[in-house]
Write a protein that binds this DNA or RNA. Structure first.
Lengths: 226, 226
DNA sequence: AAATTTAAAATTTTCGAAAATTTCGTGGTT
DNA sequence: AACCACGAAATTTTCGAAAATTTTAAATTT
């Protein structure tokens, strides 16, 4: 997973670090020393600095002048604010998609849900996190993204991507574990159903419900960091 | 205004370029060559690169791998999307501020409006743009920011800052001139009134009205670029 | 004349080291 | 023992140049 002993380009490092942050490879408040990262990725300090700057603009890393970069220390209150914004964007995006989405949108959404459902059942029955978590993260993202993908606004999608990642980062650093909850399976199902039934208000309620439950129960997760 | 013949720090360059972008110093689609900028600001290419990356994360500059940086070419449709998002965030922020804002919020908002009103009357009577535009830009930002400042969510404020800047950049590059409209004076007044009257719905309508008028009339402005 | 190839120029990207700044530990003073 | 000053170590920031890539222009071919 960590590109070691191999020259890495700026884009490589960016993608891997972003992935790492959103998947919980780092601790909250952890300092990201360019010297250390430079060794791990086998590249120059400038490349690392560049990547960290990009991540800090994404809100995934904190930058303080002359003091370097750190994984943000997100409080529960911060996460609530982030959740509120995500609810706002996702409900709006879903409502617009429900209004404008064609058969293509329905098909994509159904497919994304199918994949998500598959990996979630696997996680529930086996309890094996490990590399499955990476798959789950990708699937969860794809589902929520599909839901709003027909909203007709690239800008809304861009903002949502940003908020989604920050929500996930906050959740992971706060609960110090994985963000998968068994209850999420039914919640995703309910969101899908409301969307396919073209009921924007119900869909909004289900989205809010889903995100809020993530916030309420993050500390009862039975799964711990590897 | 341009720090020439003087060593510039990363922060200096960032602030100046951001200002320049939001004030219309650059053309849409214009390429931002690091070599040229390096000379203007008298610093190294890395410093320029770093600044451009930060600006690209703010959405104020486009970055394409191996192809460098450009001022984004924002279409009218893009601007409409940005406006919709700004309306969404600003209405939500205003509603929350109206609900939670104390006397301090009212005082700050009134003060910001007073300053804005002053410069807008000056612009209307003298018609002198020049350096006044910089003052007006700052005042307009302060007013809209004050409006939502008591919303209780740092995250909402951060998103709004981003969207506000991109709206302004889009408006300027599209109309190739200044974004000041005389009608804006009354629109700002109406927003202030609705906020002080603690009427969130009316306030939302006035905000939408204000931003939409900006979109409808950007091409009739009698003012041109210097 | 249009299209493709080739070579030169310009630009972006990466690097390693020097310069500036902060952090940390030591020793001395109140 | 708490506080401050000092200097060494670690870290961040900037730099100028080398390496890689793209763009431009000219030359050749179809």
């Amino acid at each position: 997973m960590e590109p070691d002993r191999q020259h890495s380009t700026s884009a490589d490092v960016y993608d891997d670090m972003r992935q790492g942050l959103v998947i919980g490879r780092f601790d909250a408040g952890e300092k990201l020393r360019s010297e250390i990262l430079r060794e791990q990725y086998d590249c120059s300090a400038s490349t690392i600095r560049e990547v960290l700057f990009r991540l800090s603009c994404d809100g995934l890393v904190n930058f303080i002048d002359q003091k370097g970069f750190r994984v943000p220390h997100i409080t529960l209150d911060d996460l609530r604010e982030i959740a509120e914004m995500r609810i706002m964007l996702e409900c709006e995006g879903a409502a617009r998609s429900i209004e404008h989405g064609d058969i293509h949108w329905e098909a994509g959404l159904t497919a994304a849900h199918h994949k998500l459902r598959h990996i979630e059942h696997k996680l529930r029955t086996t309890g094996q996190m490990g590399s499955n978590v990476t798959v789950w993260c990708a699937a969860e993202w794809e589902f929520h993204r599909s839901l709003i993908s027909a909203c007709g606004s690239e800008f809304l999608l861009e903002l949502h991507r940003n908020v989604y990642d920050r929500f996930r980062l906050g959740l992971l650093t706060l609960m110090k574990g994985y963000a998968f909850r068994e209850k999420g399976i039914e919640e995703h199902e309910a969101i899908l159903q409301a969307a396919l039934d073209r009921d924007p208000d119900l869909c909004a309620r289900k989205i809010r419900d889903h995100l809020m439950k993530n916030l309420e129960e993050p500390f009862v997760s039975q799964y711990v960091k590897p």
